[in-house]
Nucleic acid binder design. Structure first.
Length: 310
RNA sequence: GGCCAGGUAGCUCAGUAGGUAGAGCAACGGACUGAAAAUCCGUGUGUCGGCGGUUCGACCCCGCCCCUGGCCA
């Protein structure tokens, strides 16, 4: 999948609650750019409060893309995102506007910058079968069944993955079983030499301050009706899709609501604290990505404003 | 004021015939190619409430004091 278009795009990222959205709108207005959301959870319709989507005012001020593109009971993936993003960016460019990617999903960003391999999509039935086999092996005390099995067909990938890394082991086996070729033969995009064609402006905060912002924002989300939003979504869709229900804020509230049917109900206060902790952990993992990507250029909000005159 | 229980990591708590202590959660670092706000790996960060005493050695035993909760006045 070509990522040629990325060199004509702008990128603004940073950990959750770092203030990306407001800056992006200001910059887009100034230079006449259109915003493409770079966010794995803002794609779901109706999941508004917990994903901190841009407000209607912000969306009216600047065209926003890649927000509300799938139903929350549908699955989504990085490959689908990349395809949508490529198409949308090319449309924006063809109108003579600049695509401005804004968001905090580093894997999606890396896929935009380097591409991902063109392989078979997820096969839920096959995954379920592999997991069932692994679970059965576990009952015999065989704790690294998947890892040994992968080592037979793809020793290179097996050597790279930890025996407990079930998700990646399953994916690697899935690709081998569906194509007859090891996933290591496909996954070359990230290690190939590449031109650093894009600058990724990366908002940086002292960790302690970022934690204060995260805690305050989570409180604000609950005050704005996050619990009601989840109740409305589950009433409308039943259960959310596997990918949508993983979103921080949603999975904890879902667990709280489900626990009311049990004899160990989870309190609202506990739920709020869990959401805060999980959001802080998300921010830390995002920062790990930014440190590892050479395209990322760390700036404070003030520096970004000064550099771009916004 | 008296009696009882307790005071150990940021939080909740465990623990030691007396040999300077460990779990969960949090925190911190790393990995990451079709689940990625997911998942996985790694790291203990501590005047063991305070001051004295006994002891080669005290978080543990003794005394006094401080704090918290409960019961009785």
């Amino acid at each position: 999948m070509s990522t040629f278009f990325a060199k004509n795009c702008l990128f603004l990222t940073g950990p959750t609650a770092s203030g990306k959205t407001a800056l992006a709108v200001a910059l887009a207005r100034k230079i006449g750019a259109e915003i493409l959301s770079l966010d794995s959870m803002a794609v779901y319709r109706g999941m508004d409060i917990g994903t901190a989507k841009p407000t209607t005012t912000e969306r009216a001020a600047v065209p926003h893309h890649l927000v509300d593109v799938v139903e929350p009971n549908e699955d989504f993936s990085v490959a689908e995102y990349l395809e949508l993003a490529r198409r949308t960016a090319e449309e924006v460019l063809s109108r003579g506007k600049t695509p401005l990617f804004v968001g905090g999903t580093p894997l999606y960003m890396k896929a935009l910058l380097r591409g991902i391999f063109d392989g078979p999509p997820a096969d839920p039935a096959l995954r379920a079968q592999l997991l069932a086999e692994a679970e059965h092996a576990m009952t015999r005390g065989d704790i690294d069944f998947l890892h040994r099995r992968l080592a037979e067909s793809d020793p290179a990938t097996a050597a790279r993955l930890h025996p407990n890394d079930t998700k990646r082991l399953v994916r690697a086996l899935e690709v081998f079983l569906l194509t007859g070729r090891p996933i290591s033969a496909f996954q070359t995009q990230f290690s190939e030499p590449h031109e650093e064609t894009a600058t990724v402006w990366t908002l940086d905060w002292p960790r302690e301050e970022l934690h204060r912002r995260i805690n305050a924002r989570v409180d604000a989300m609950f005050a704005a009706g996050l619990v009601t939003e989840v109740e409305t979504l589950t009433a409308k869709y039943g259960t959310l899709s596997f990918t949508a229900r993983q979103a921080v804020g949603y999975r904890e509230v879902i667990a709280m609501l489900e626990s009311r049917e049990t004899d160990t109900p989870i309190s609202l206060a506990e739920t709020v604290e869990e959401v805060k902790a999980h959001t802080r952990q998300l921010a830390r993992r995002q920062c790990t990505w930014f440190r590892s990507l050479p395209e990322c250029r760390s700036v404070t909000v003030e520096e970004f404003r000064e550099i771009h005159g916004v």
